[in-house]
Amino acid sequence: MSVNIITISTDRYSKGKEIAEMVAQKLGYECVSREVILSAANEFGVPETKLLQTIMDTPTILNMFSRDRQRYMAYIKAVVADYMLRHEIVYHGLVGHPIVRGVSHVLKTRIIANMEDRIRLEMERENISEEKAGKIITALDEQQKKWGKAVYGIDVTNPIYYDLIINVGHIGADDTEDAVETIISTAGHKKFQPNTYSINCMKNIALSCRVRAVLIDKDPRIEVKSDKGSVYIYTKTLKRKSQKQGLAFKEEIMKIDGVEHVEVYSDRETFLNFAQGQ
């Protein structure tokens, strides 16, 4: 299997969607964004609007760790990871790149734009004052940071999480072609070629996300790692339950496609020490 992936995350008004679509078209890849939400909704029988809210709304202190929110996010991650495993795609959005941290054949890109350009576009679109537009853009940026922190525990705007950052404001207002060419030439570098190790990382991530999505109803705090079909799980739900229930729990996991072996830990430190893979 040789699957190339480019993730593109963007600020509002930075032409990210347009650039992602052009990159996908030139490479003959699929450009994926909200389509995966529809897939997740269909697969897990959840209303699409609920899933959309999960990726768009800023989590509040009250709903940040709500069972529904965690459940929906687990479904989305499972579908996104599975999609990345099986398709050559340009993924546009915020959900994708933190899932595939550590996968060497994924080019993680961020498109940004100058604040003044973004404010000007918001003013034109909404016919509002510069001050109001500035406040809206600042609030949106803050919302993006909060969302990333709540869902992935990271600041998704931090450059350390990206291989390539392009400021479209620095290469000419209309020159998205330059950005497209930069992304394509970077993605073509040998270092981003899929290899056995990186493909195994991707498979491990996809299996871990899948197992977590299946078990999320039982324990919203469940942690999963996988390594070539061996699945390692940390959950507190089995702590006080019988051995019989533990076996039933393992049997349920063994039914998931790709699972060959299961280890369940009720102590997080032991899980962190012994769990292998991603």
Binding site: R101, G102, V103, S104, H189, K190, K191, F192, Q193, N195, T196, Y197, S198, N200
Partner: peptide, 20 residues
């Protein structure tokens, strides 16, 4: 000791593949 950085370095320098 496979990592993202090591895999990229090996591939960039012309390795055919890298296995953990």
């Amino acid at each position: 000791f496979a990592t993202e950085a090591l895999a990229r370095e090996a591939m960039a320098k012309g390795a055919f593949d890298i296995i953990a």
